[in-house]
C-alpha cells in the first residue's frame, strides 16, 4: 500500500529515538540518552522502546549497527531514510513553534 502523502507528527518517543541513533547505540543506551536529552522528562518504558525499535527497523528508518568489539548488545543506527524523516519533522516543528510564538507573543494577556 503506498504511503499517503499526508504525514502525521512523529511521536515524542520515535523522534527522540531517531535523534539518539545519529550515534549507534543499544536499547538501554537510547533510554538513558533520551532521559538525559529531555532532562528527565521523557522516561521511555522498555516495552514501549522495544516495540518502537521493531517498527522503525521494519520501516527502514533505523538499521542494526555492527556491534562494537566486546559488547554483545545489539546496536542500532539511523538510516538515510530515517534522517530525511527527522528533517521533515523538524520543518513541521519549526512551523508550529513560529506560529505559536507569533500568536502568543502578540497576545496582550
Amino acid at each position: 500500500m503506498p504511503e499517503s502523502s499526508e504525514r502525521g507528527a512523529l511521536t515524542e518517543a520515535v523522534f527522540y529515538i531517531l535523534l539518539s541513533l545519529y550515534t549507534p547505540m543499544h536499547g538501554y543506551g537510547i533510554m538513558q540518552n533520551v532521559k538525559q536529552m529531555s532532562q528527565d522528562r521523557v522516561d521511555l518504558g522498555a516495552g514501549t522502546l522495544y516495540g518502537a525499535i521493531n517498527t522503525l527497523l521494519h520501516k527502514g528508518w533505523i538499521e542494526p549497527a555492527a556491534t562494537s568489539g566486546s559488547s554483545r548488545k545489539k546496536e542500532y543506527r539511523i538510516t538515510r531514510l530515517g534522517k530525511s524523516t527527522v528533517l521533515e519533522e523538524l520543518e513541521r516543528l519549526k512551523e508550529l513553534l513560529a506560529n505559536g510564538e507569533k500568536i502568543v507573543g502578540e497576545d496582550p494577556k
Binding site: T11, E12, A13, V42, D43, L44, G45, A46, G47, T48, G51
Partner: peptide, 16 residues
C-alpha cells in the same frame, strides 16, 4: 537504578 515502567505511552499501554 531509577523508575521502572514498561510502557510510557498510551498506544503501547492500550495494546497490552
Amino acid at each position: 537504578e531509577g523508575g521502572f515502567n514498561l510502557y510510557s505511552d498510551a498506544e503501547s499501554r492500550m495494546e497490552h
